[in-house]
Design a protein around this nucleic acid. Structure first.
Lengths: 213, 213
DNA sequence: CTGAATGGATAGCGACACTCTCTACTATCC
DNA sequence: GGATAGTAGAGAGTGTCGCTATCCATTCAG
């Protein structure tokens, strides 16, 4: 197919596709003449993935590129890929951390982690966690760390479902893509469902009648 | 205190504070002379909240303003406030939804919701959920909806902890702020903890030795 | 043969979140 | 009391981001 059809089938404007090609988010098509290239279903699939990462995951073009590089790197363990993807999709957050927040994170690791995490800045994920707790402290919510254990409890249930979902997929390519999709789209789904869970739990607890007003 | 001290105590540059004042994110200080104003601890607290919403919540200035308006609206039920805040912090997402994704959301509501949700576009939250599932479908993950129930299970645990945390606070102002902070900073914390839970659960299941690469 | 589409490249645009600059003061320290 | 630093307020400017528009030479489709 040519770029026009790729555009029609994906719902992405032709100039945008050209832009993605330039930015290396999409591999070039096979040139059949100096100004004719041929794109296949892989391009369509990749294009849709890019849009999902941008629209739902809220990733920048640069982050998308990092994720795609991680996906495409062939000589790398699944573990490393997951790590690379996670780093790419977790933006650093605030620079200066409250040492008390760092201590909270370390205490959490002492309770749960089998890994010996001492430096929270070594990974974007732990840094993100520390930055969030640090922010909570700065607005006077230093008790927020009390929620960590309950959160982790709920998230282990979610993580088990995630894992089960990922291993369903046969080919390594599908597994890594399921991981990316599951992680990023999952984040958005979790955000939304948490709001719904808030509503449900609060009406359960207060039994304030089924939501008129 | 004057703007310089406010800046020093909050770590926010003076021109940025002036910008926030212009944008209405921060109430004006009390003028003691034509070019001297006095700010108090409320300003500092509010400024830190704004930074938390921007840095950790990733909200735009416009969304922050919406949230603050919701917080400051006095003659409104807690329920309405929560709703307004949730709408403000959930950006709409993609325009066109896959009808199958919409059906997935409706089926989910049929299983769990006590509310009779039929139109998913009526709220940003349900729209966000449908958009996420729609995106998942477009990249070939139409089985993603199978995760919803497990997610909701985990999130009810989290929501109960959230609720317990919120009701700890005495004054209505504190409650609404705890809600905002808990929701937004909570989202970030959940994102990070989910990554950690993935690592832990996957090493449990595969028992592949404690993480040396 | 003609008009639409294509590949490739460069320039421009609109939104966003500041940041700079300027004016006309005022506060403070020596 | 004079130098220096800080301040309110407002408009213009800056840098980044994610496209979008324009151009050209070529080529395909009817």
């Amino acid at each position: 197919m040519r770029v026009g059809e790729l555009s029609k089938r994906s719902g992405v404007a032709v100039p945008t596709i050209k832009y993605y090609l330039r930015e290396g988010l999409l591999p070039a098509g096979v040139l059949t003449s100096p100004n004719q290239a041929h794109y296949d279903d892989e391009h369509l699939r990749r294009l849709r993935l890019v849009r999902a990462l941008v629209d739902v995951g809220g990733l920048s073009i640069a982050s998308v590129r990092e994720v795609l590089v991680a996906i495409d790197t062939r000589d790398d363990s699944l573990h490393n890929k997951l790590g690379a993807v996670q780093e790419a999709i977790s933006q650093p957050g605030a620079a200066q951390l409250d040492p008390l927040a760092v201590a909270d994170v370390q205490a959490f690791f002492a309770r749960h982690g089998q890994t010996e995490c001492i430096d929270v800045t070594e990974s974007n994920v732990t840094h993100m966690l520390a930055a969030a707790l640090s922010s909570a402290r700065s607005v006077g919510h230093d008790q927020f760390r009390d929620l960590l254990d309950a959160y982790f409890e709920g998230l282990k249930i979610i993580a088990r479902a995630d894992l089960e979902y990922v291993v369903r997929h046969k080919s390594p390519d599908d597994v890594i893509e399921a991981m990316v999709v599951g992680t990023l789209i999952g984040d958005t789904v979790i955000k939304a469902l948490r709001r719904l869970a808030h509503a449900q739990v609060s009406s359960e607890v207060f039994s304030d009648g089924p939501a008129q007003n």
